[in-house]
Computed example of a mutant assay.
Amino acid sequence: MEHTSETVAEGKLIGETSYAERAVKYTELAIDGIKIDFYDAKNKVVHEVKKSDKVEQAHIAQVKYYLYILHKNGIDDASAIIEYPKMRQKQMIGWEEGDKATVEFWVEEIRKLINLETCPPLVKLKICKKCSYYDFCYSGEVLE
């Protein structure tokens, strides 16, 4: 759904304009269904740019999943930097004890959802309106 999302397009534009030199310096890495826009292969650092004006747990979870995929593919000791250009702030994220079990739990929970015969009930959260999957989750819903 992300390829049709205005939110994703806006975030990509912010990343490209805030760090214009990065596309030349770092590599885009597509592996096991993920696409890391900026990967510093020499230093094993994922750079994730967020358009948000606040740090969110979902951002950390996303890069933890990226680090998990890298580790599964033999790239050990990678780390990540989440960058927030609007706040002029960075957050360093490393792989910690227990992260593998946590990410594998998330993956298993997603597998369970995918294998359900019917969709689970809709959970309405504030963050939903900003999500690139909004139209998918709310298709057929009567909005109040």
Rank of each mutant, 00 (worst) to 15 (best):
residue 87 M to K: 09
residue 71 H to S: 10
residue 123 V to M: 10
residue 108 E to W: 07
residue 31 I to G: 00
residue 47 H to S: 03
residue 11 G to F: 05
residue 132 S to N: 09
residue 108 E to L: 08
residue 38 F to W: 13
residue 25 K to N: 10
residue 128 C to G: 03
residue 38 F to P: 05
residue 14 I to D: 04
residue 32 D to L: 03
residue 48 E to D: 15
residue 118 T to S: 13
residue 49 V to Q: 02
residue 95 W to C: 00
residue 129 K to R: 12
residue 72 K to S: 05
residue 91 Q to N: 11
residue 66 Y to F: 10
residue 138 Y to W: 14
residue 75 I to A: 04
residue 108 E to R: 08
residue 35 K to G: 05
residue 66 Y to I: 01
residue 134 Y to S: 03
residue 64 K to A: 01
residue 44 K to C: 08
residue 31 I to D: 02
residue 15 G to W: 06
residue 14 I to F: 06
residue 134 Y to A: 03
residue 56 E to G: 05
residue 63 V to M: 00
residue 125 L to D: 10
residue 39 Y to L: 02
residue 72 K to G: 04
residue 144 E to G: 13
residue 140 G to P: 06
residue 84 Y to N: 02
residue 132 S to Q: 09
residue 7 T to Y: 11
residue 135 D to F: 04
residue 105 F to S: 07
residue 1 M to A: 13
residue 33 G to P: 07
residue 68 Y to A: 00
residue 109 E to A: 12
residue 20 A to Y: 09
residue 60 I to A: 02
residue 97 E to V: 08
residue 108 E to Q: 09
residue 35 K to F: 01
residue 139 S to C: 07
residue 25 K to W: 13
residue 66 Y to D: 02
residue 77 D to F: 08
residue 89 Q to V: 10
residue 58 A to L: 11
residue 106 W to A: 02
residue 139 S to V: 11
residue 110 I to G: 02
residue 115 N to E: 15
residue 76 D to C: 02
residue 53 D to N: 13
residue 122 L to G: 01
residue 80 A to H: 06
residue 21 E to K: 12
residue 8 V to A: 11
residue 88 R to G: 15
residue 88 R to M: 15
residue 25 K to M: 15
residue 70 L to P: 03
residue 137 C to H: 09
residue 30 A to N: 12
residue 22 R to G: 10
residue 102 T to A: 09
residue 109 E to Q: 10
residue 63 V to E: 01
residue 13 L to K: 14
residue 12 K to V: 14
residue 102 T to C: 02
residue 46 V to R: 00
residue 27 T to Q: 14
residue 124 K to Y: 09
residue 50 K to Q: 00
residue 29 L to S: 04
residue 109 E to M: 09
residue 135 D to N: 12
residue 19 Y to L: 12
residue 73 N to W: 07
residue 129 K to I: 11
residue 101 A to M: 02
residue 116 L to F: 06
residue 41 A to H: 11
residue 119 C to K: 14
residue 63 V to A: 00
residue 115 N to F: 08
residue 139 S to Q: 13
residue 98 G to K: 00
residue 84 Y to K: 00
residue 42 K to E: 15
residue 60 I to L: 07
residue 5 S to W: 09
residue 23 A to S: 15
residue 17 T to F: 06
residue 71 H to Y: 11
residue 36 I to P: 11
residue 56 E to N: 07
residue 104 E to P: 00
residue 5 S to H: 03
residue 90 K to I: 13
residue 125 L to T: 15
residue 62 Q to F: 05
residue 2 E to N: 11
residue 85 P to G: 01
residue 123 V to C: 07
residue 28 E to R: 15
residue 55 V to I: 15
residue 143 L to A: 06
residue 18 S to E: 02
residue 118 T to M: 12
residue 128 C to D: 15
residue 79 S to N: 11
residue 132 S to R: 05
residue 91 Q to A: 06
residue 94 G to N: 12
residue 135 D to S: 08
residue 53 D to T: 14
residue 141 E to R: 08
residue 93 I to A: 02
residue 93 I to Y: 04
residue 18 S to C: 03
residue 17 T to Q: 13
residue 135 D to G: 10
residue 42 K to N: 12
residue 130 K to L: 12
residue 116 L to Y: 05
residue 97 E to C: 00
residue 136 F to P: 00
residue 126 K to E: 14
residue 136 F to R: 08
residue 23 A to M: 14
residue 4 T to C: 07
residue 42 K to D: 14
residue 88 R to T: 14
residue 43 N to A: 05
residue 116 L to P: 04
residue 142 V to D: 12
residue 83 E to C: 00
residue 58 A to W: 13
residue 85 P to V: 05
residue 115 N to Q: 13
